[in-house]
Design a protein around this nucleic acid. Sequence first.
DNA 1: CGACGATGATTGTCAGACAATCTGACAACG
DNA 2: CGTTGTCAGATTGTCTGACAATCATCGTCG
Lengths: 229, 229
Amino acid sequence: MDPAVSSTDAFGSLSLEHSSTVDRVADELRRAVFEGELESGTPLREVALAESLGVSRPTLREALALLVAEGLATREPNRGVSVARPDPESVRDVSTARTVLETAGMRNWPHASEGAREAVRRALGDYERAVAQGASYQELNQRHLVIHLSLVGLTGSPRLVSMAESIVAELRLALAQIDRVRRNARDQAGSHHHLLDLLEAGDIDAAVAELGEHLHGAEDAIIERLDLG
Amino acid sequence: MDPAVSSTDAFGSLSLEHSSTVDRVADELRRAVFEGELESGTPLREVALAESLGVSRPTLREALALLVAEGLATREPNRGVSVARPDPESVRDVSTARTVLETAGMRNWPHASEGAREAVRRALGDYERAVAQGASYQELNQRHLVIHLSLVGLTGSPRLVSMAESIVAELRLALAQIDRVRRNARDQAGSHHHLLDLLEAGDIDAAVAELGEHLHGAEDAIIERLDLG
DNA sequence: CGACGATGATTGTCAGACAATCTGACAACG
DNA sequence: CGTTGTCAGATTGTCTGACAATCATCGTCG
């Protein structure tokens, strides 16, 4: 993730990856959740996890607190924390929140910075390239979500983007639980490309409408799979 | 160990204060920050604070992590946690994020639940009543922010509301640092009442426009005071 | 057959300790 | 005189170990 080695100047490659132990533990837990290694609802026992990760219990507890704050896990008093269990209601909520944030970004398309617009184009390009190369559906999922994040980036607000990231994380959790959701990637690529075309053409209302349909469809698909899980 | 349980009446304090120690510590810290007791930038030394609050260091650390996650404090590696220092850029960002969330709520006015609409009316009523009674400007601030939160509530999305709460918290921090910002309360009451009237009349575009102006004005006022602070 | 109490497991919290790092100052050196 | 090296104090990051409170389980007893 940090290939920043190709710098020519004297001190170019000073990445100084000073991530604290807590951060590393939290990263590892997120990865495990997204990868589906931890089923939703499984309790995260502190002693066992701490031992397994080679850290002390207080350190692990701080990492767990982070996960809880992000909505990836839930804590019940005196019963510890366990991997969040996405229910239809929360999926619906995530979807409406997503819609609000991404719509706001799209409506700001004309006034957005050129960099933000370029980020959208790039995200879409990366996605289409991945589709063409038949990448793993995990990578496709990832790149697909990056597109949507870039839409929020059109607002130019770091805080809104970080909120969107948190929401997308919850979505990733839900997707990981379903795992077999392998929707038609080509279809998605076409729909997203159409979205960008509408934006570039200045027909924002149409783009917003299409986004709404897209998100609503995704919401229904997830909930459906969730119910029969 | 907890002598604060001196309830006199039989079951008078049914507060079900099931908040963990960490939560209580975090609450106390937030209060201190909002009250302006802790100037922005002051380092929160762990041992001293833990001793002063009568809790252990790990417990305090968890509370500090919460504050940092909420944006009320910042952590620099190996240098500890200190009260966040709101700079113009972040105030601007908070303001645009606020605008997005509240605008989304207002646009949803016609489709919002009756309860959500009623919450807006109630928040405004409480505010006007407080103004009429000449309440402390802290209470006015508080009630004023509740109005804006209720606007976000029109989206019907708990996640968006909790995001707005986090953002409002940052705003409260900035306000606490300025402290002398005592803008004309009556003027605000009038402007907000006008907003609600527009919504009830169905003229949402006008309401959104007015909100935009209102928030932009607030943003400028805060930044100006911040600069000369 | 169901209510009840003992037992073990797990969390919430604490105390104490250690190495790593930062800060600041002071001495050594060119 | 400015730069560099070194050191003591302070503070954080992390660990170990421990304890009480609470929860879950299950066998026992009425």
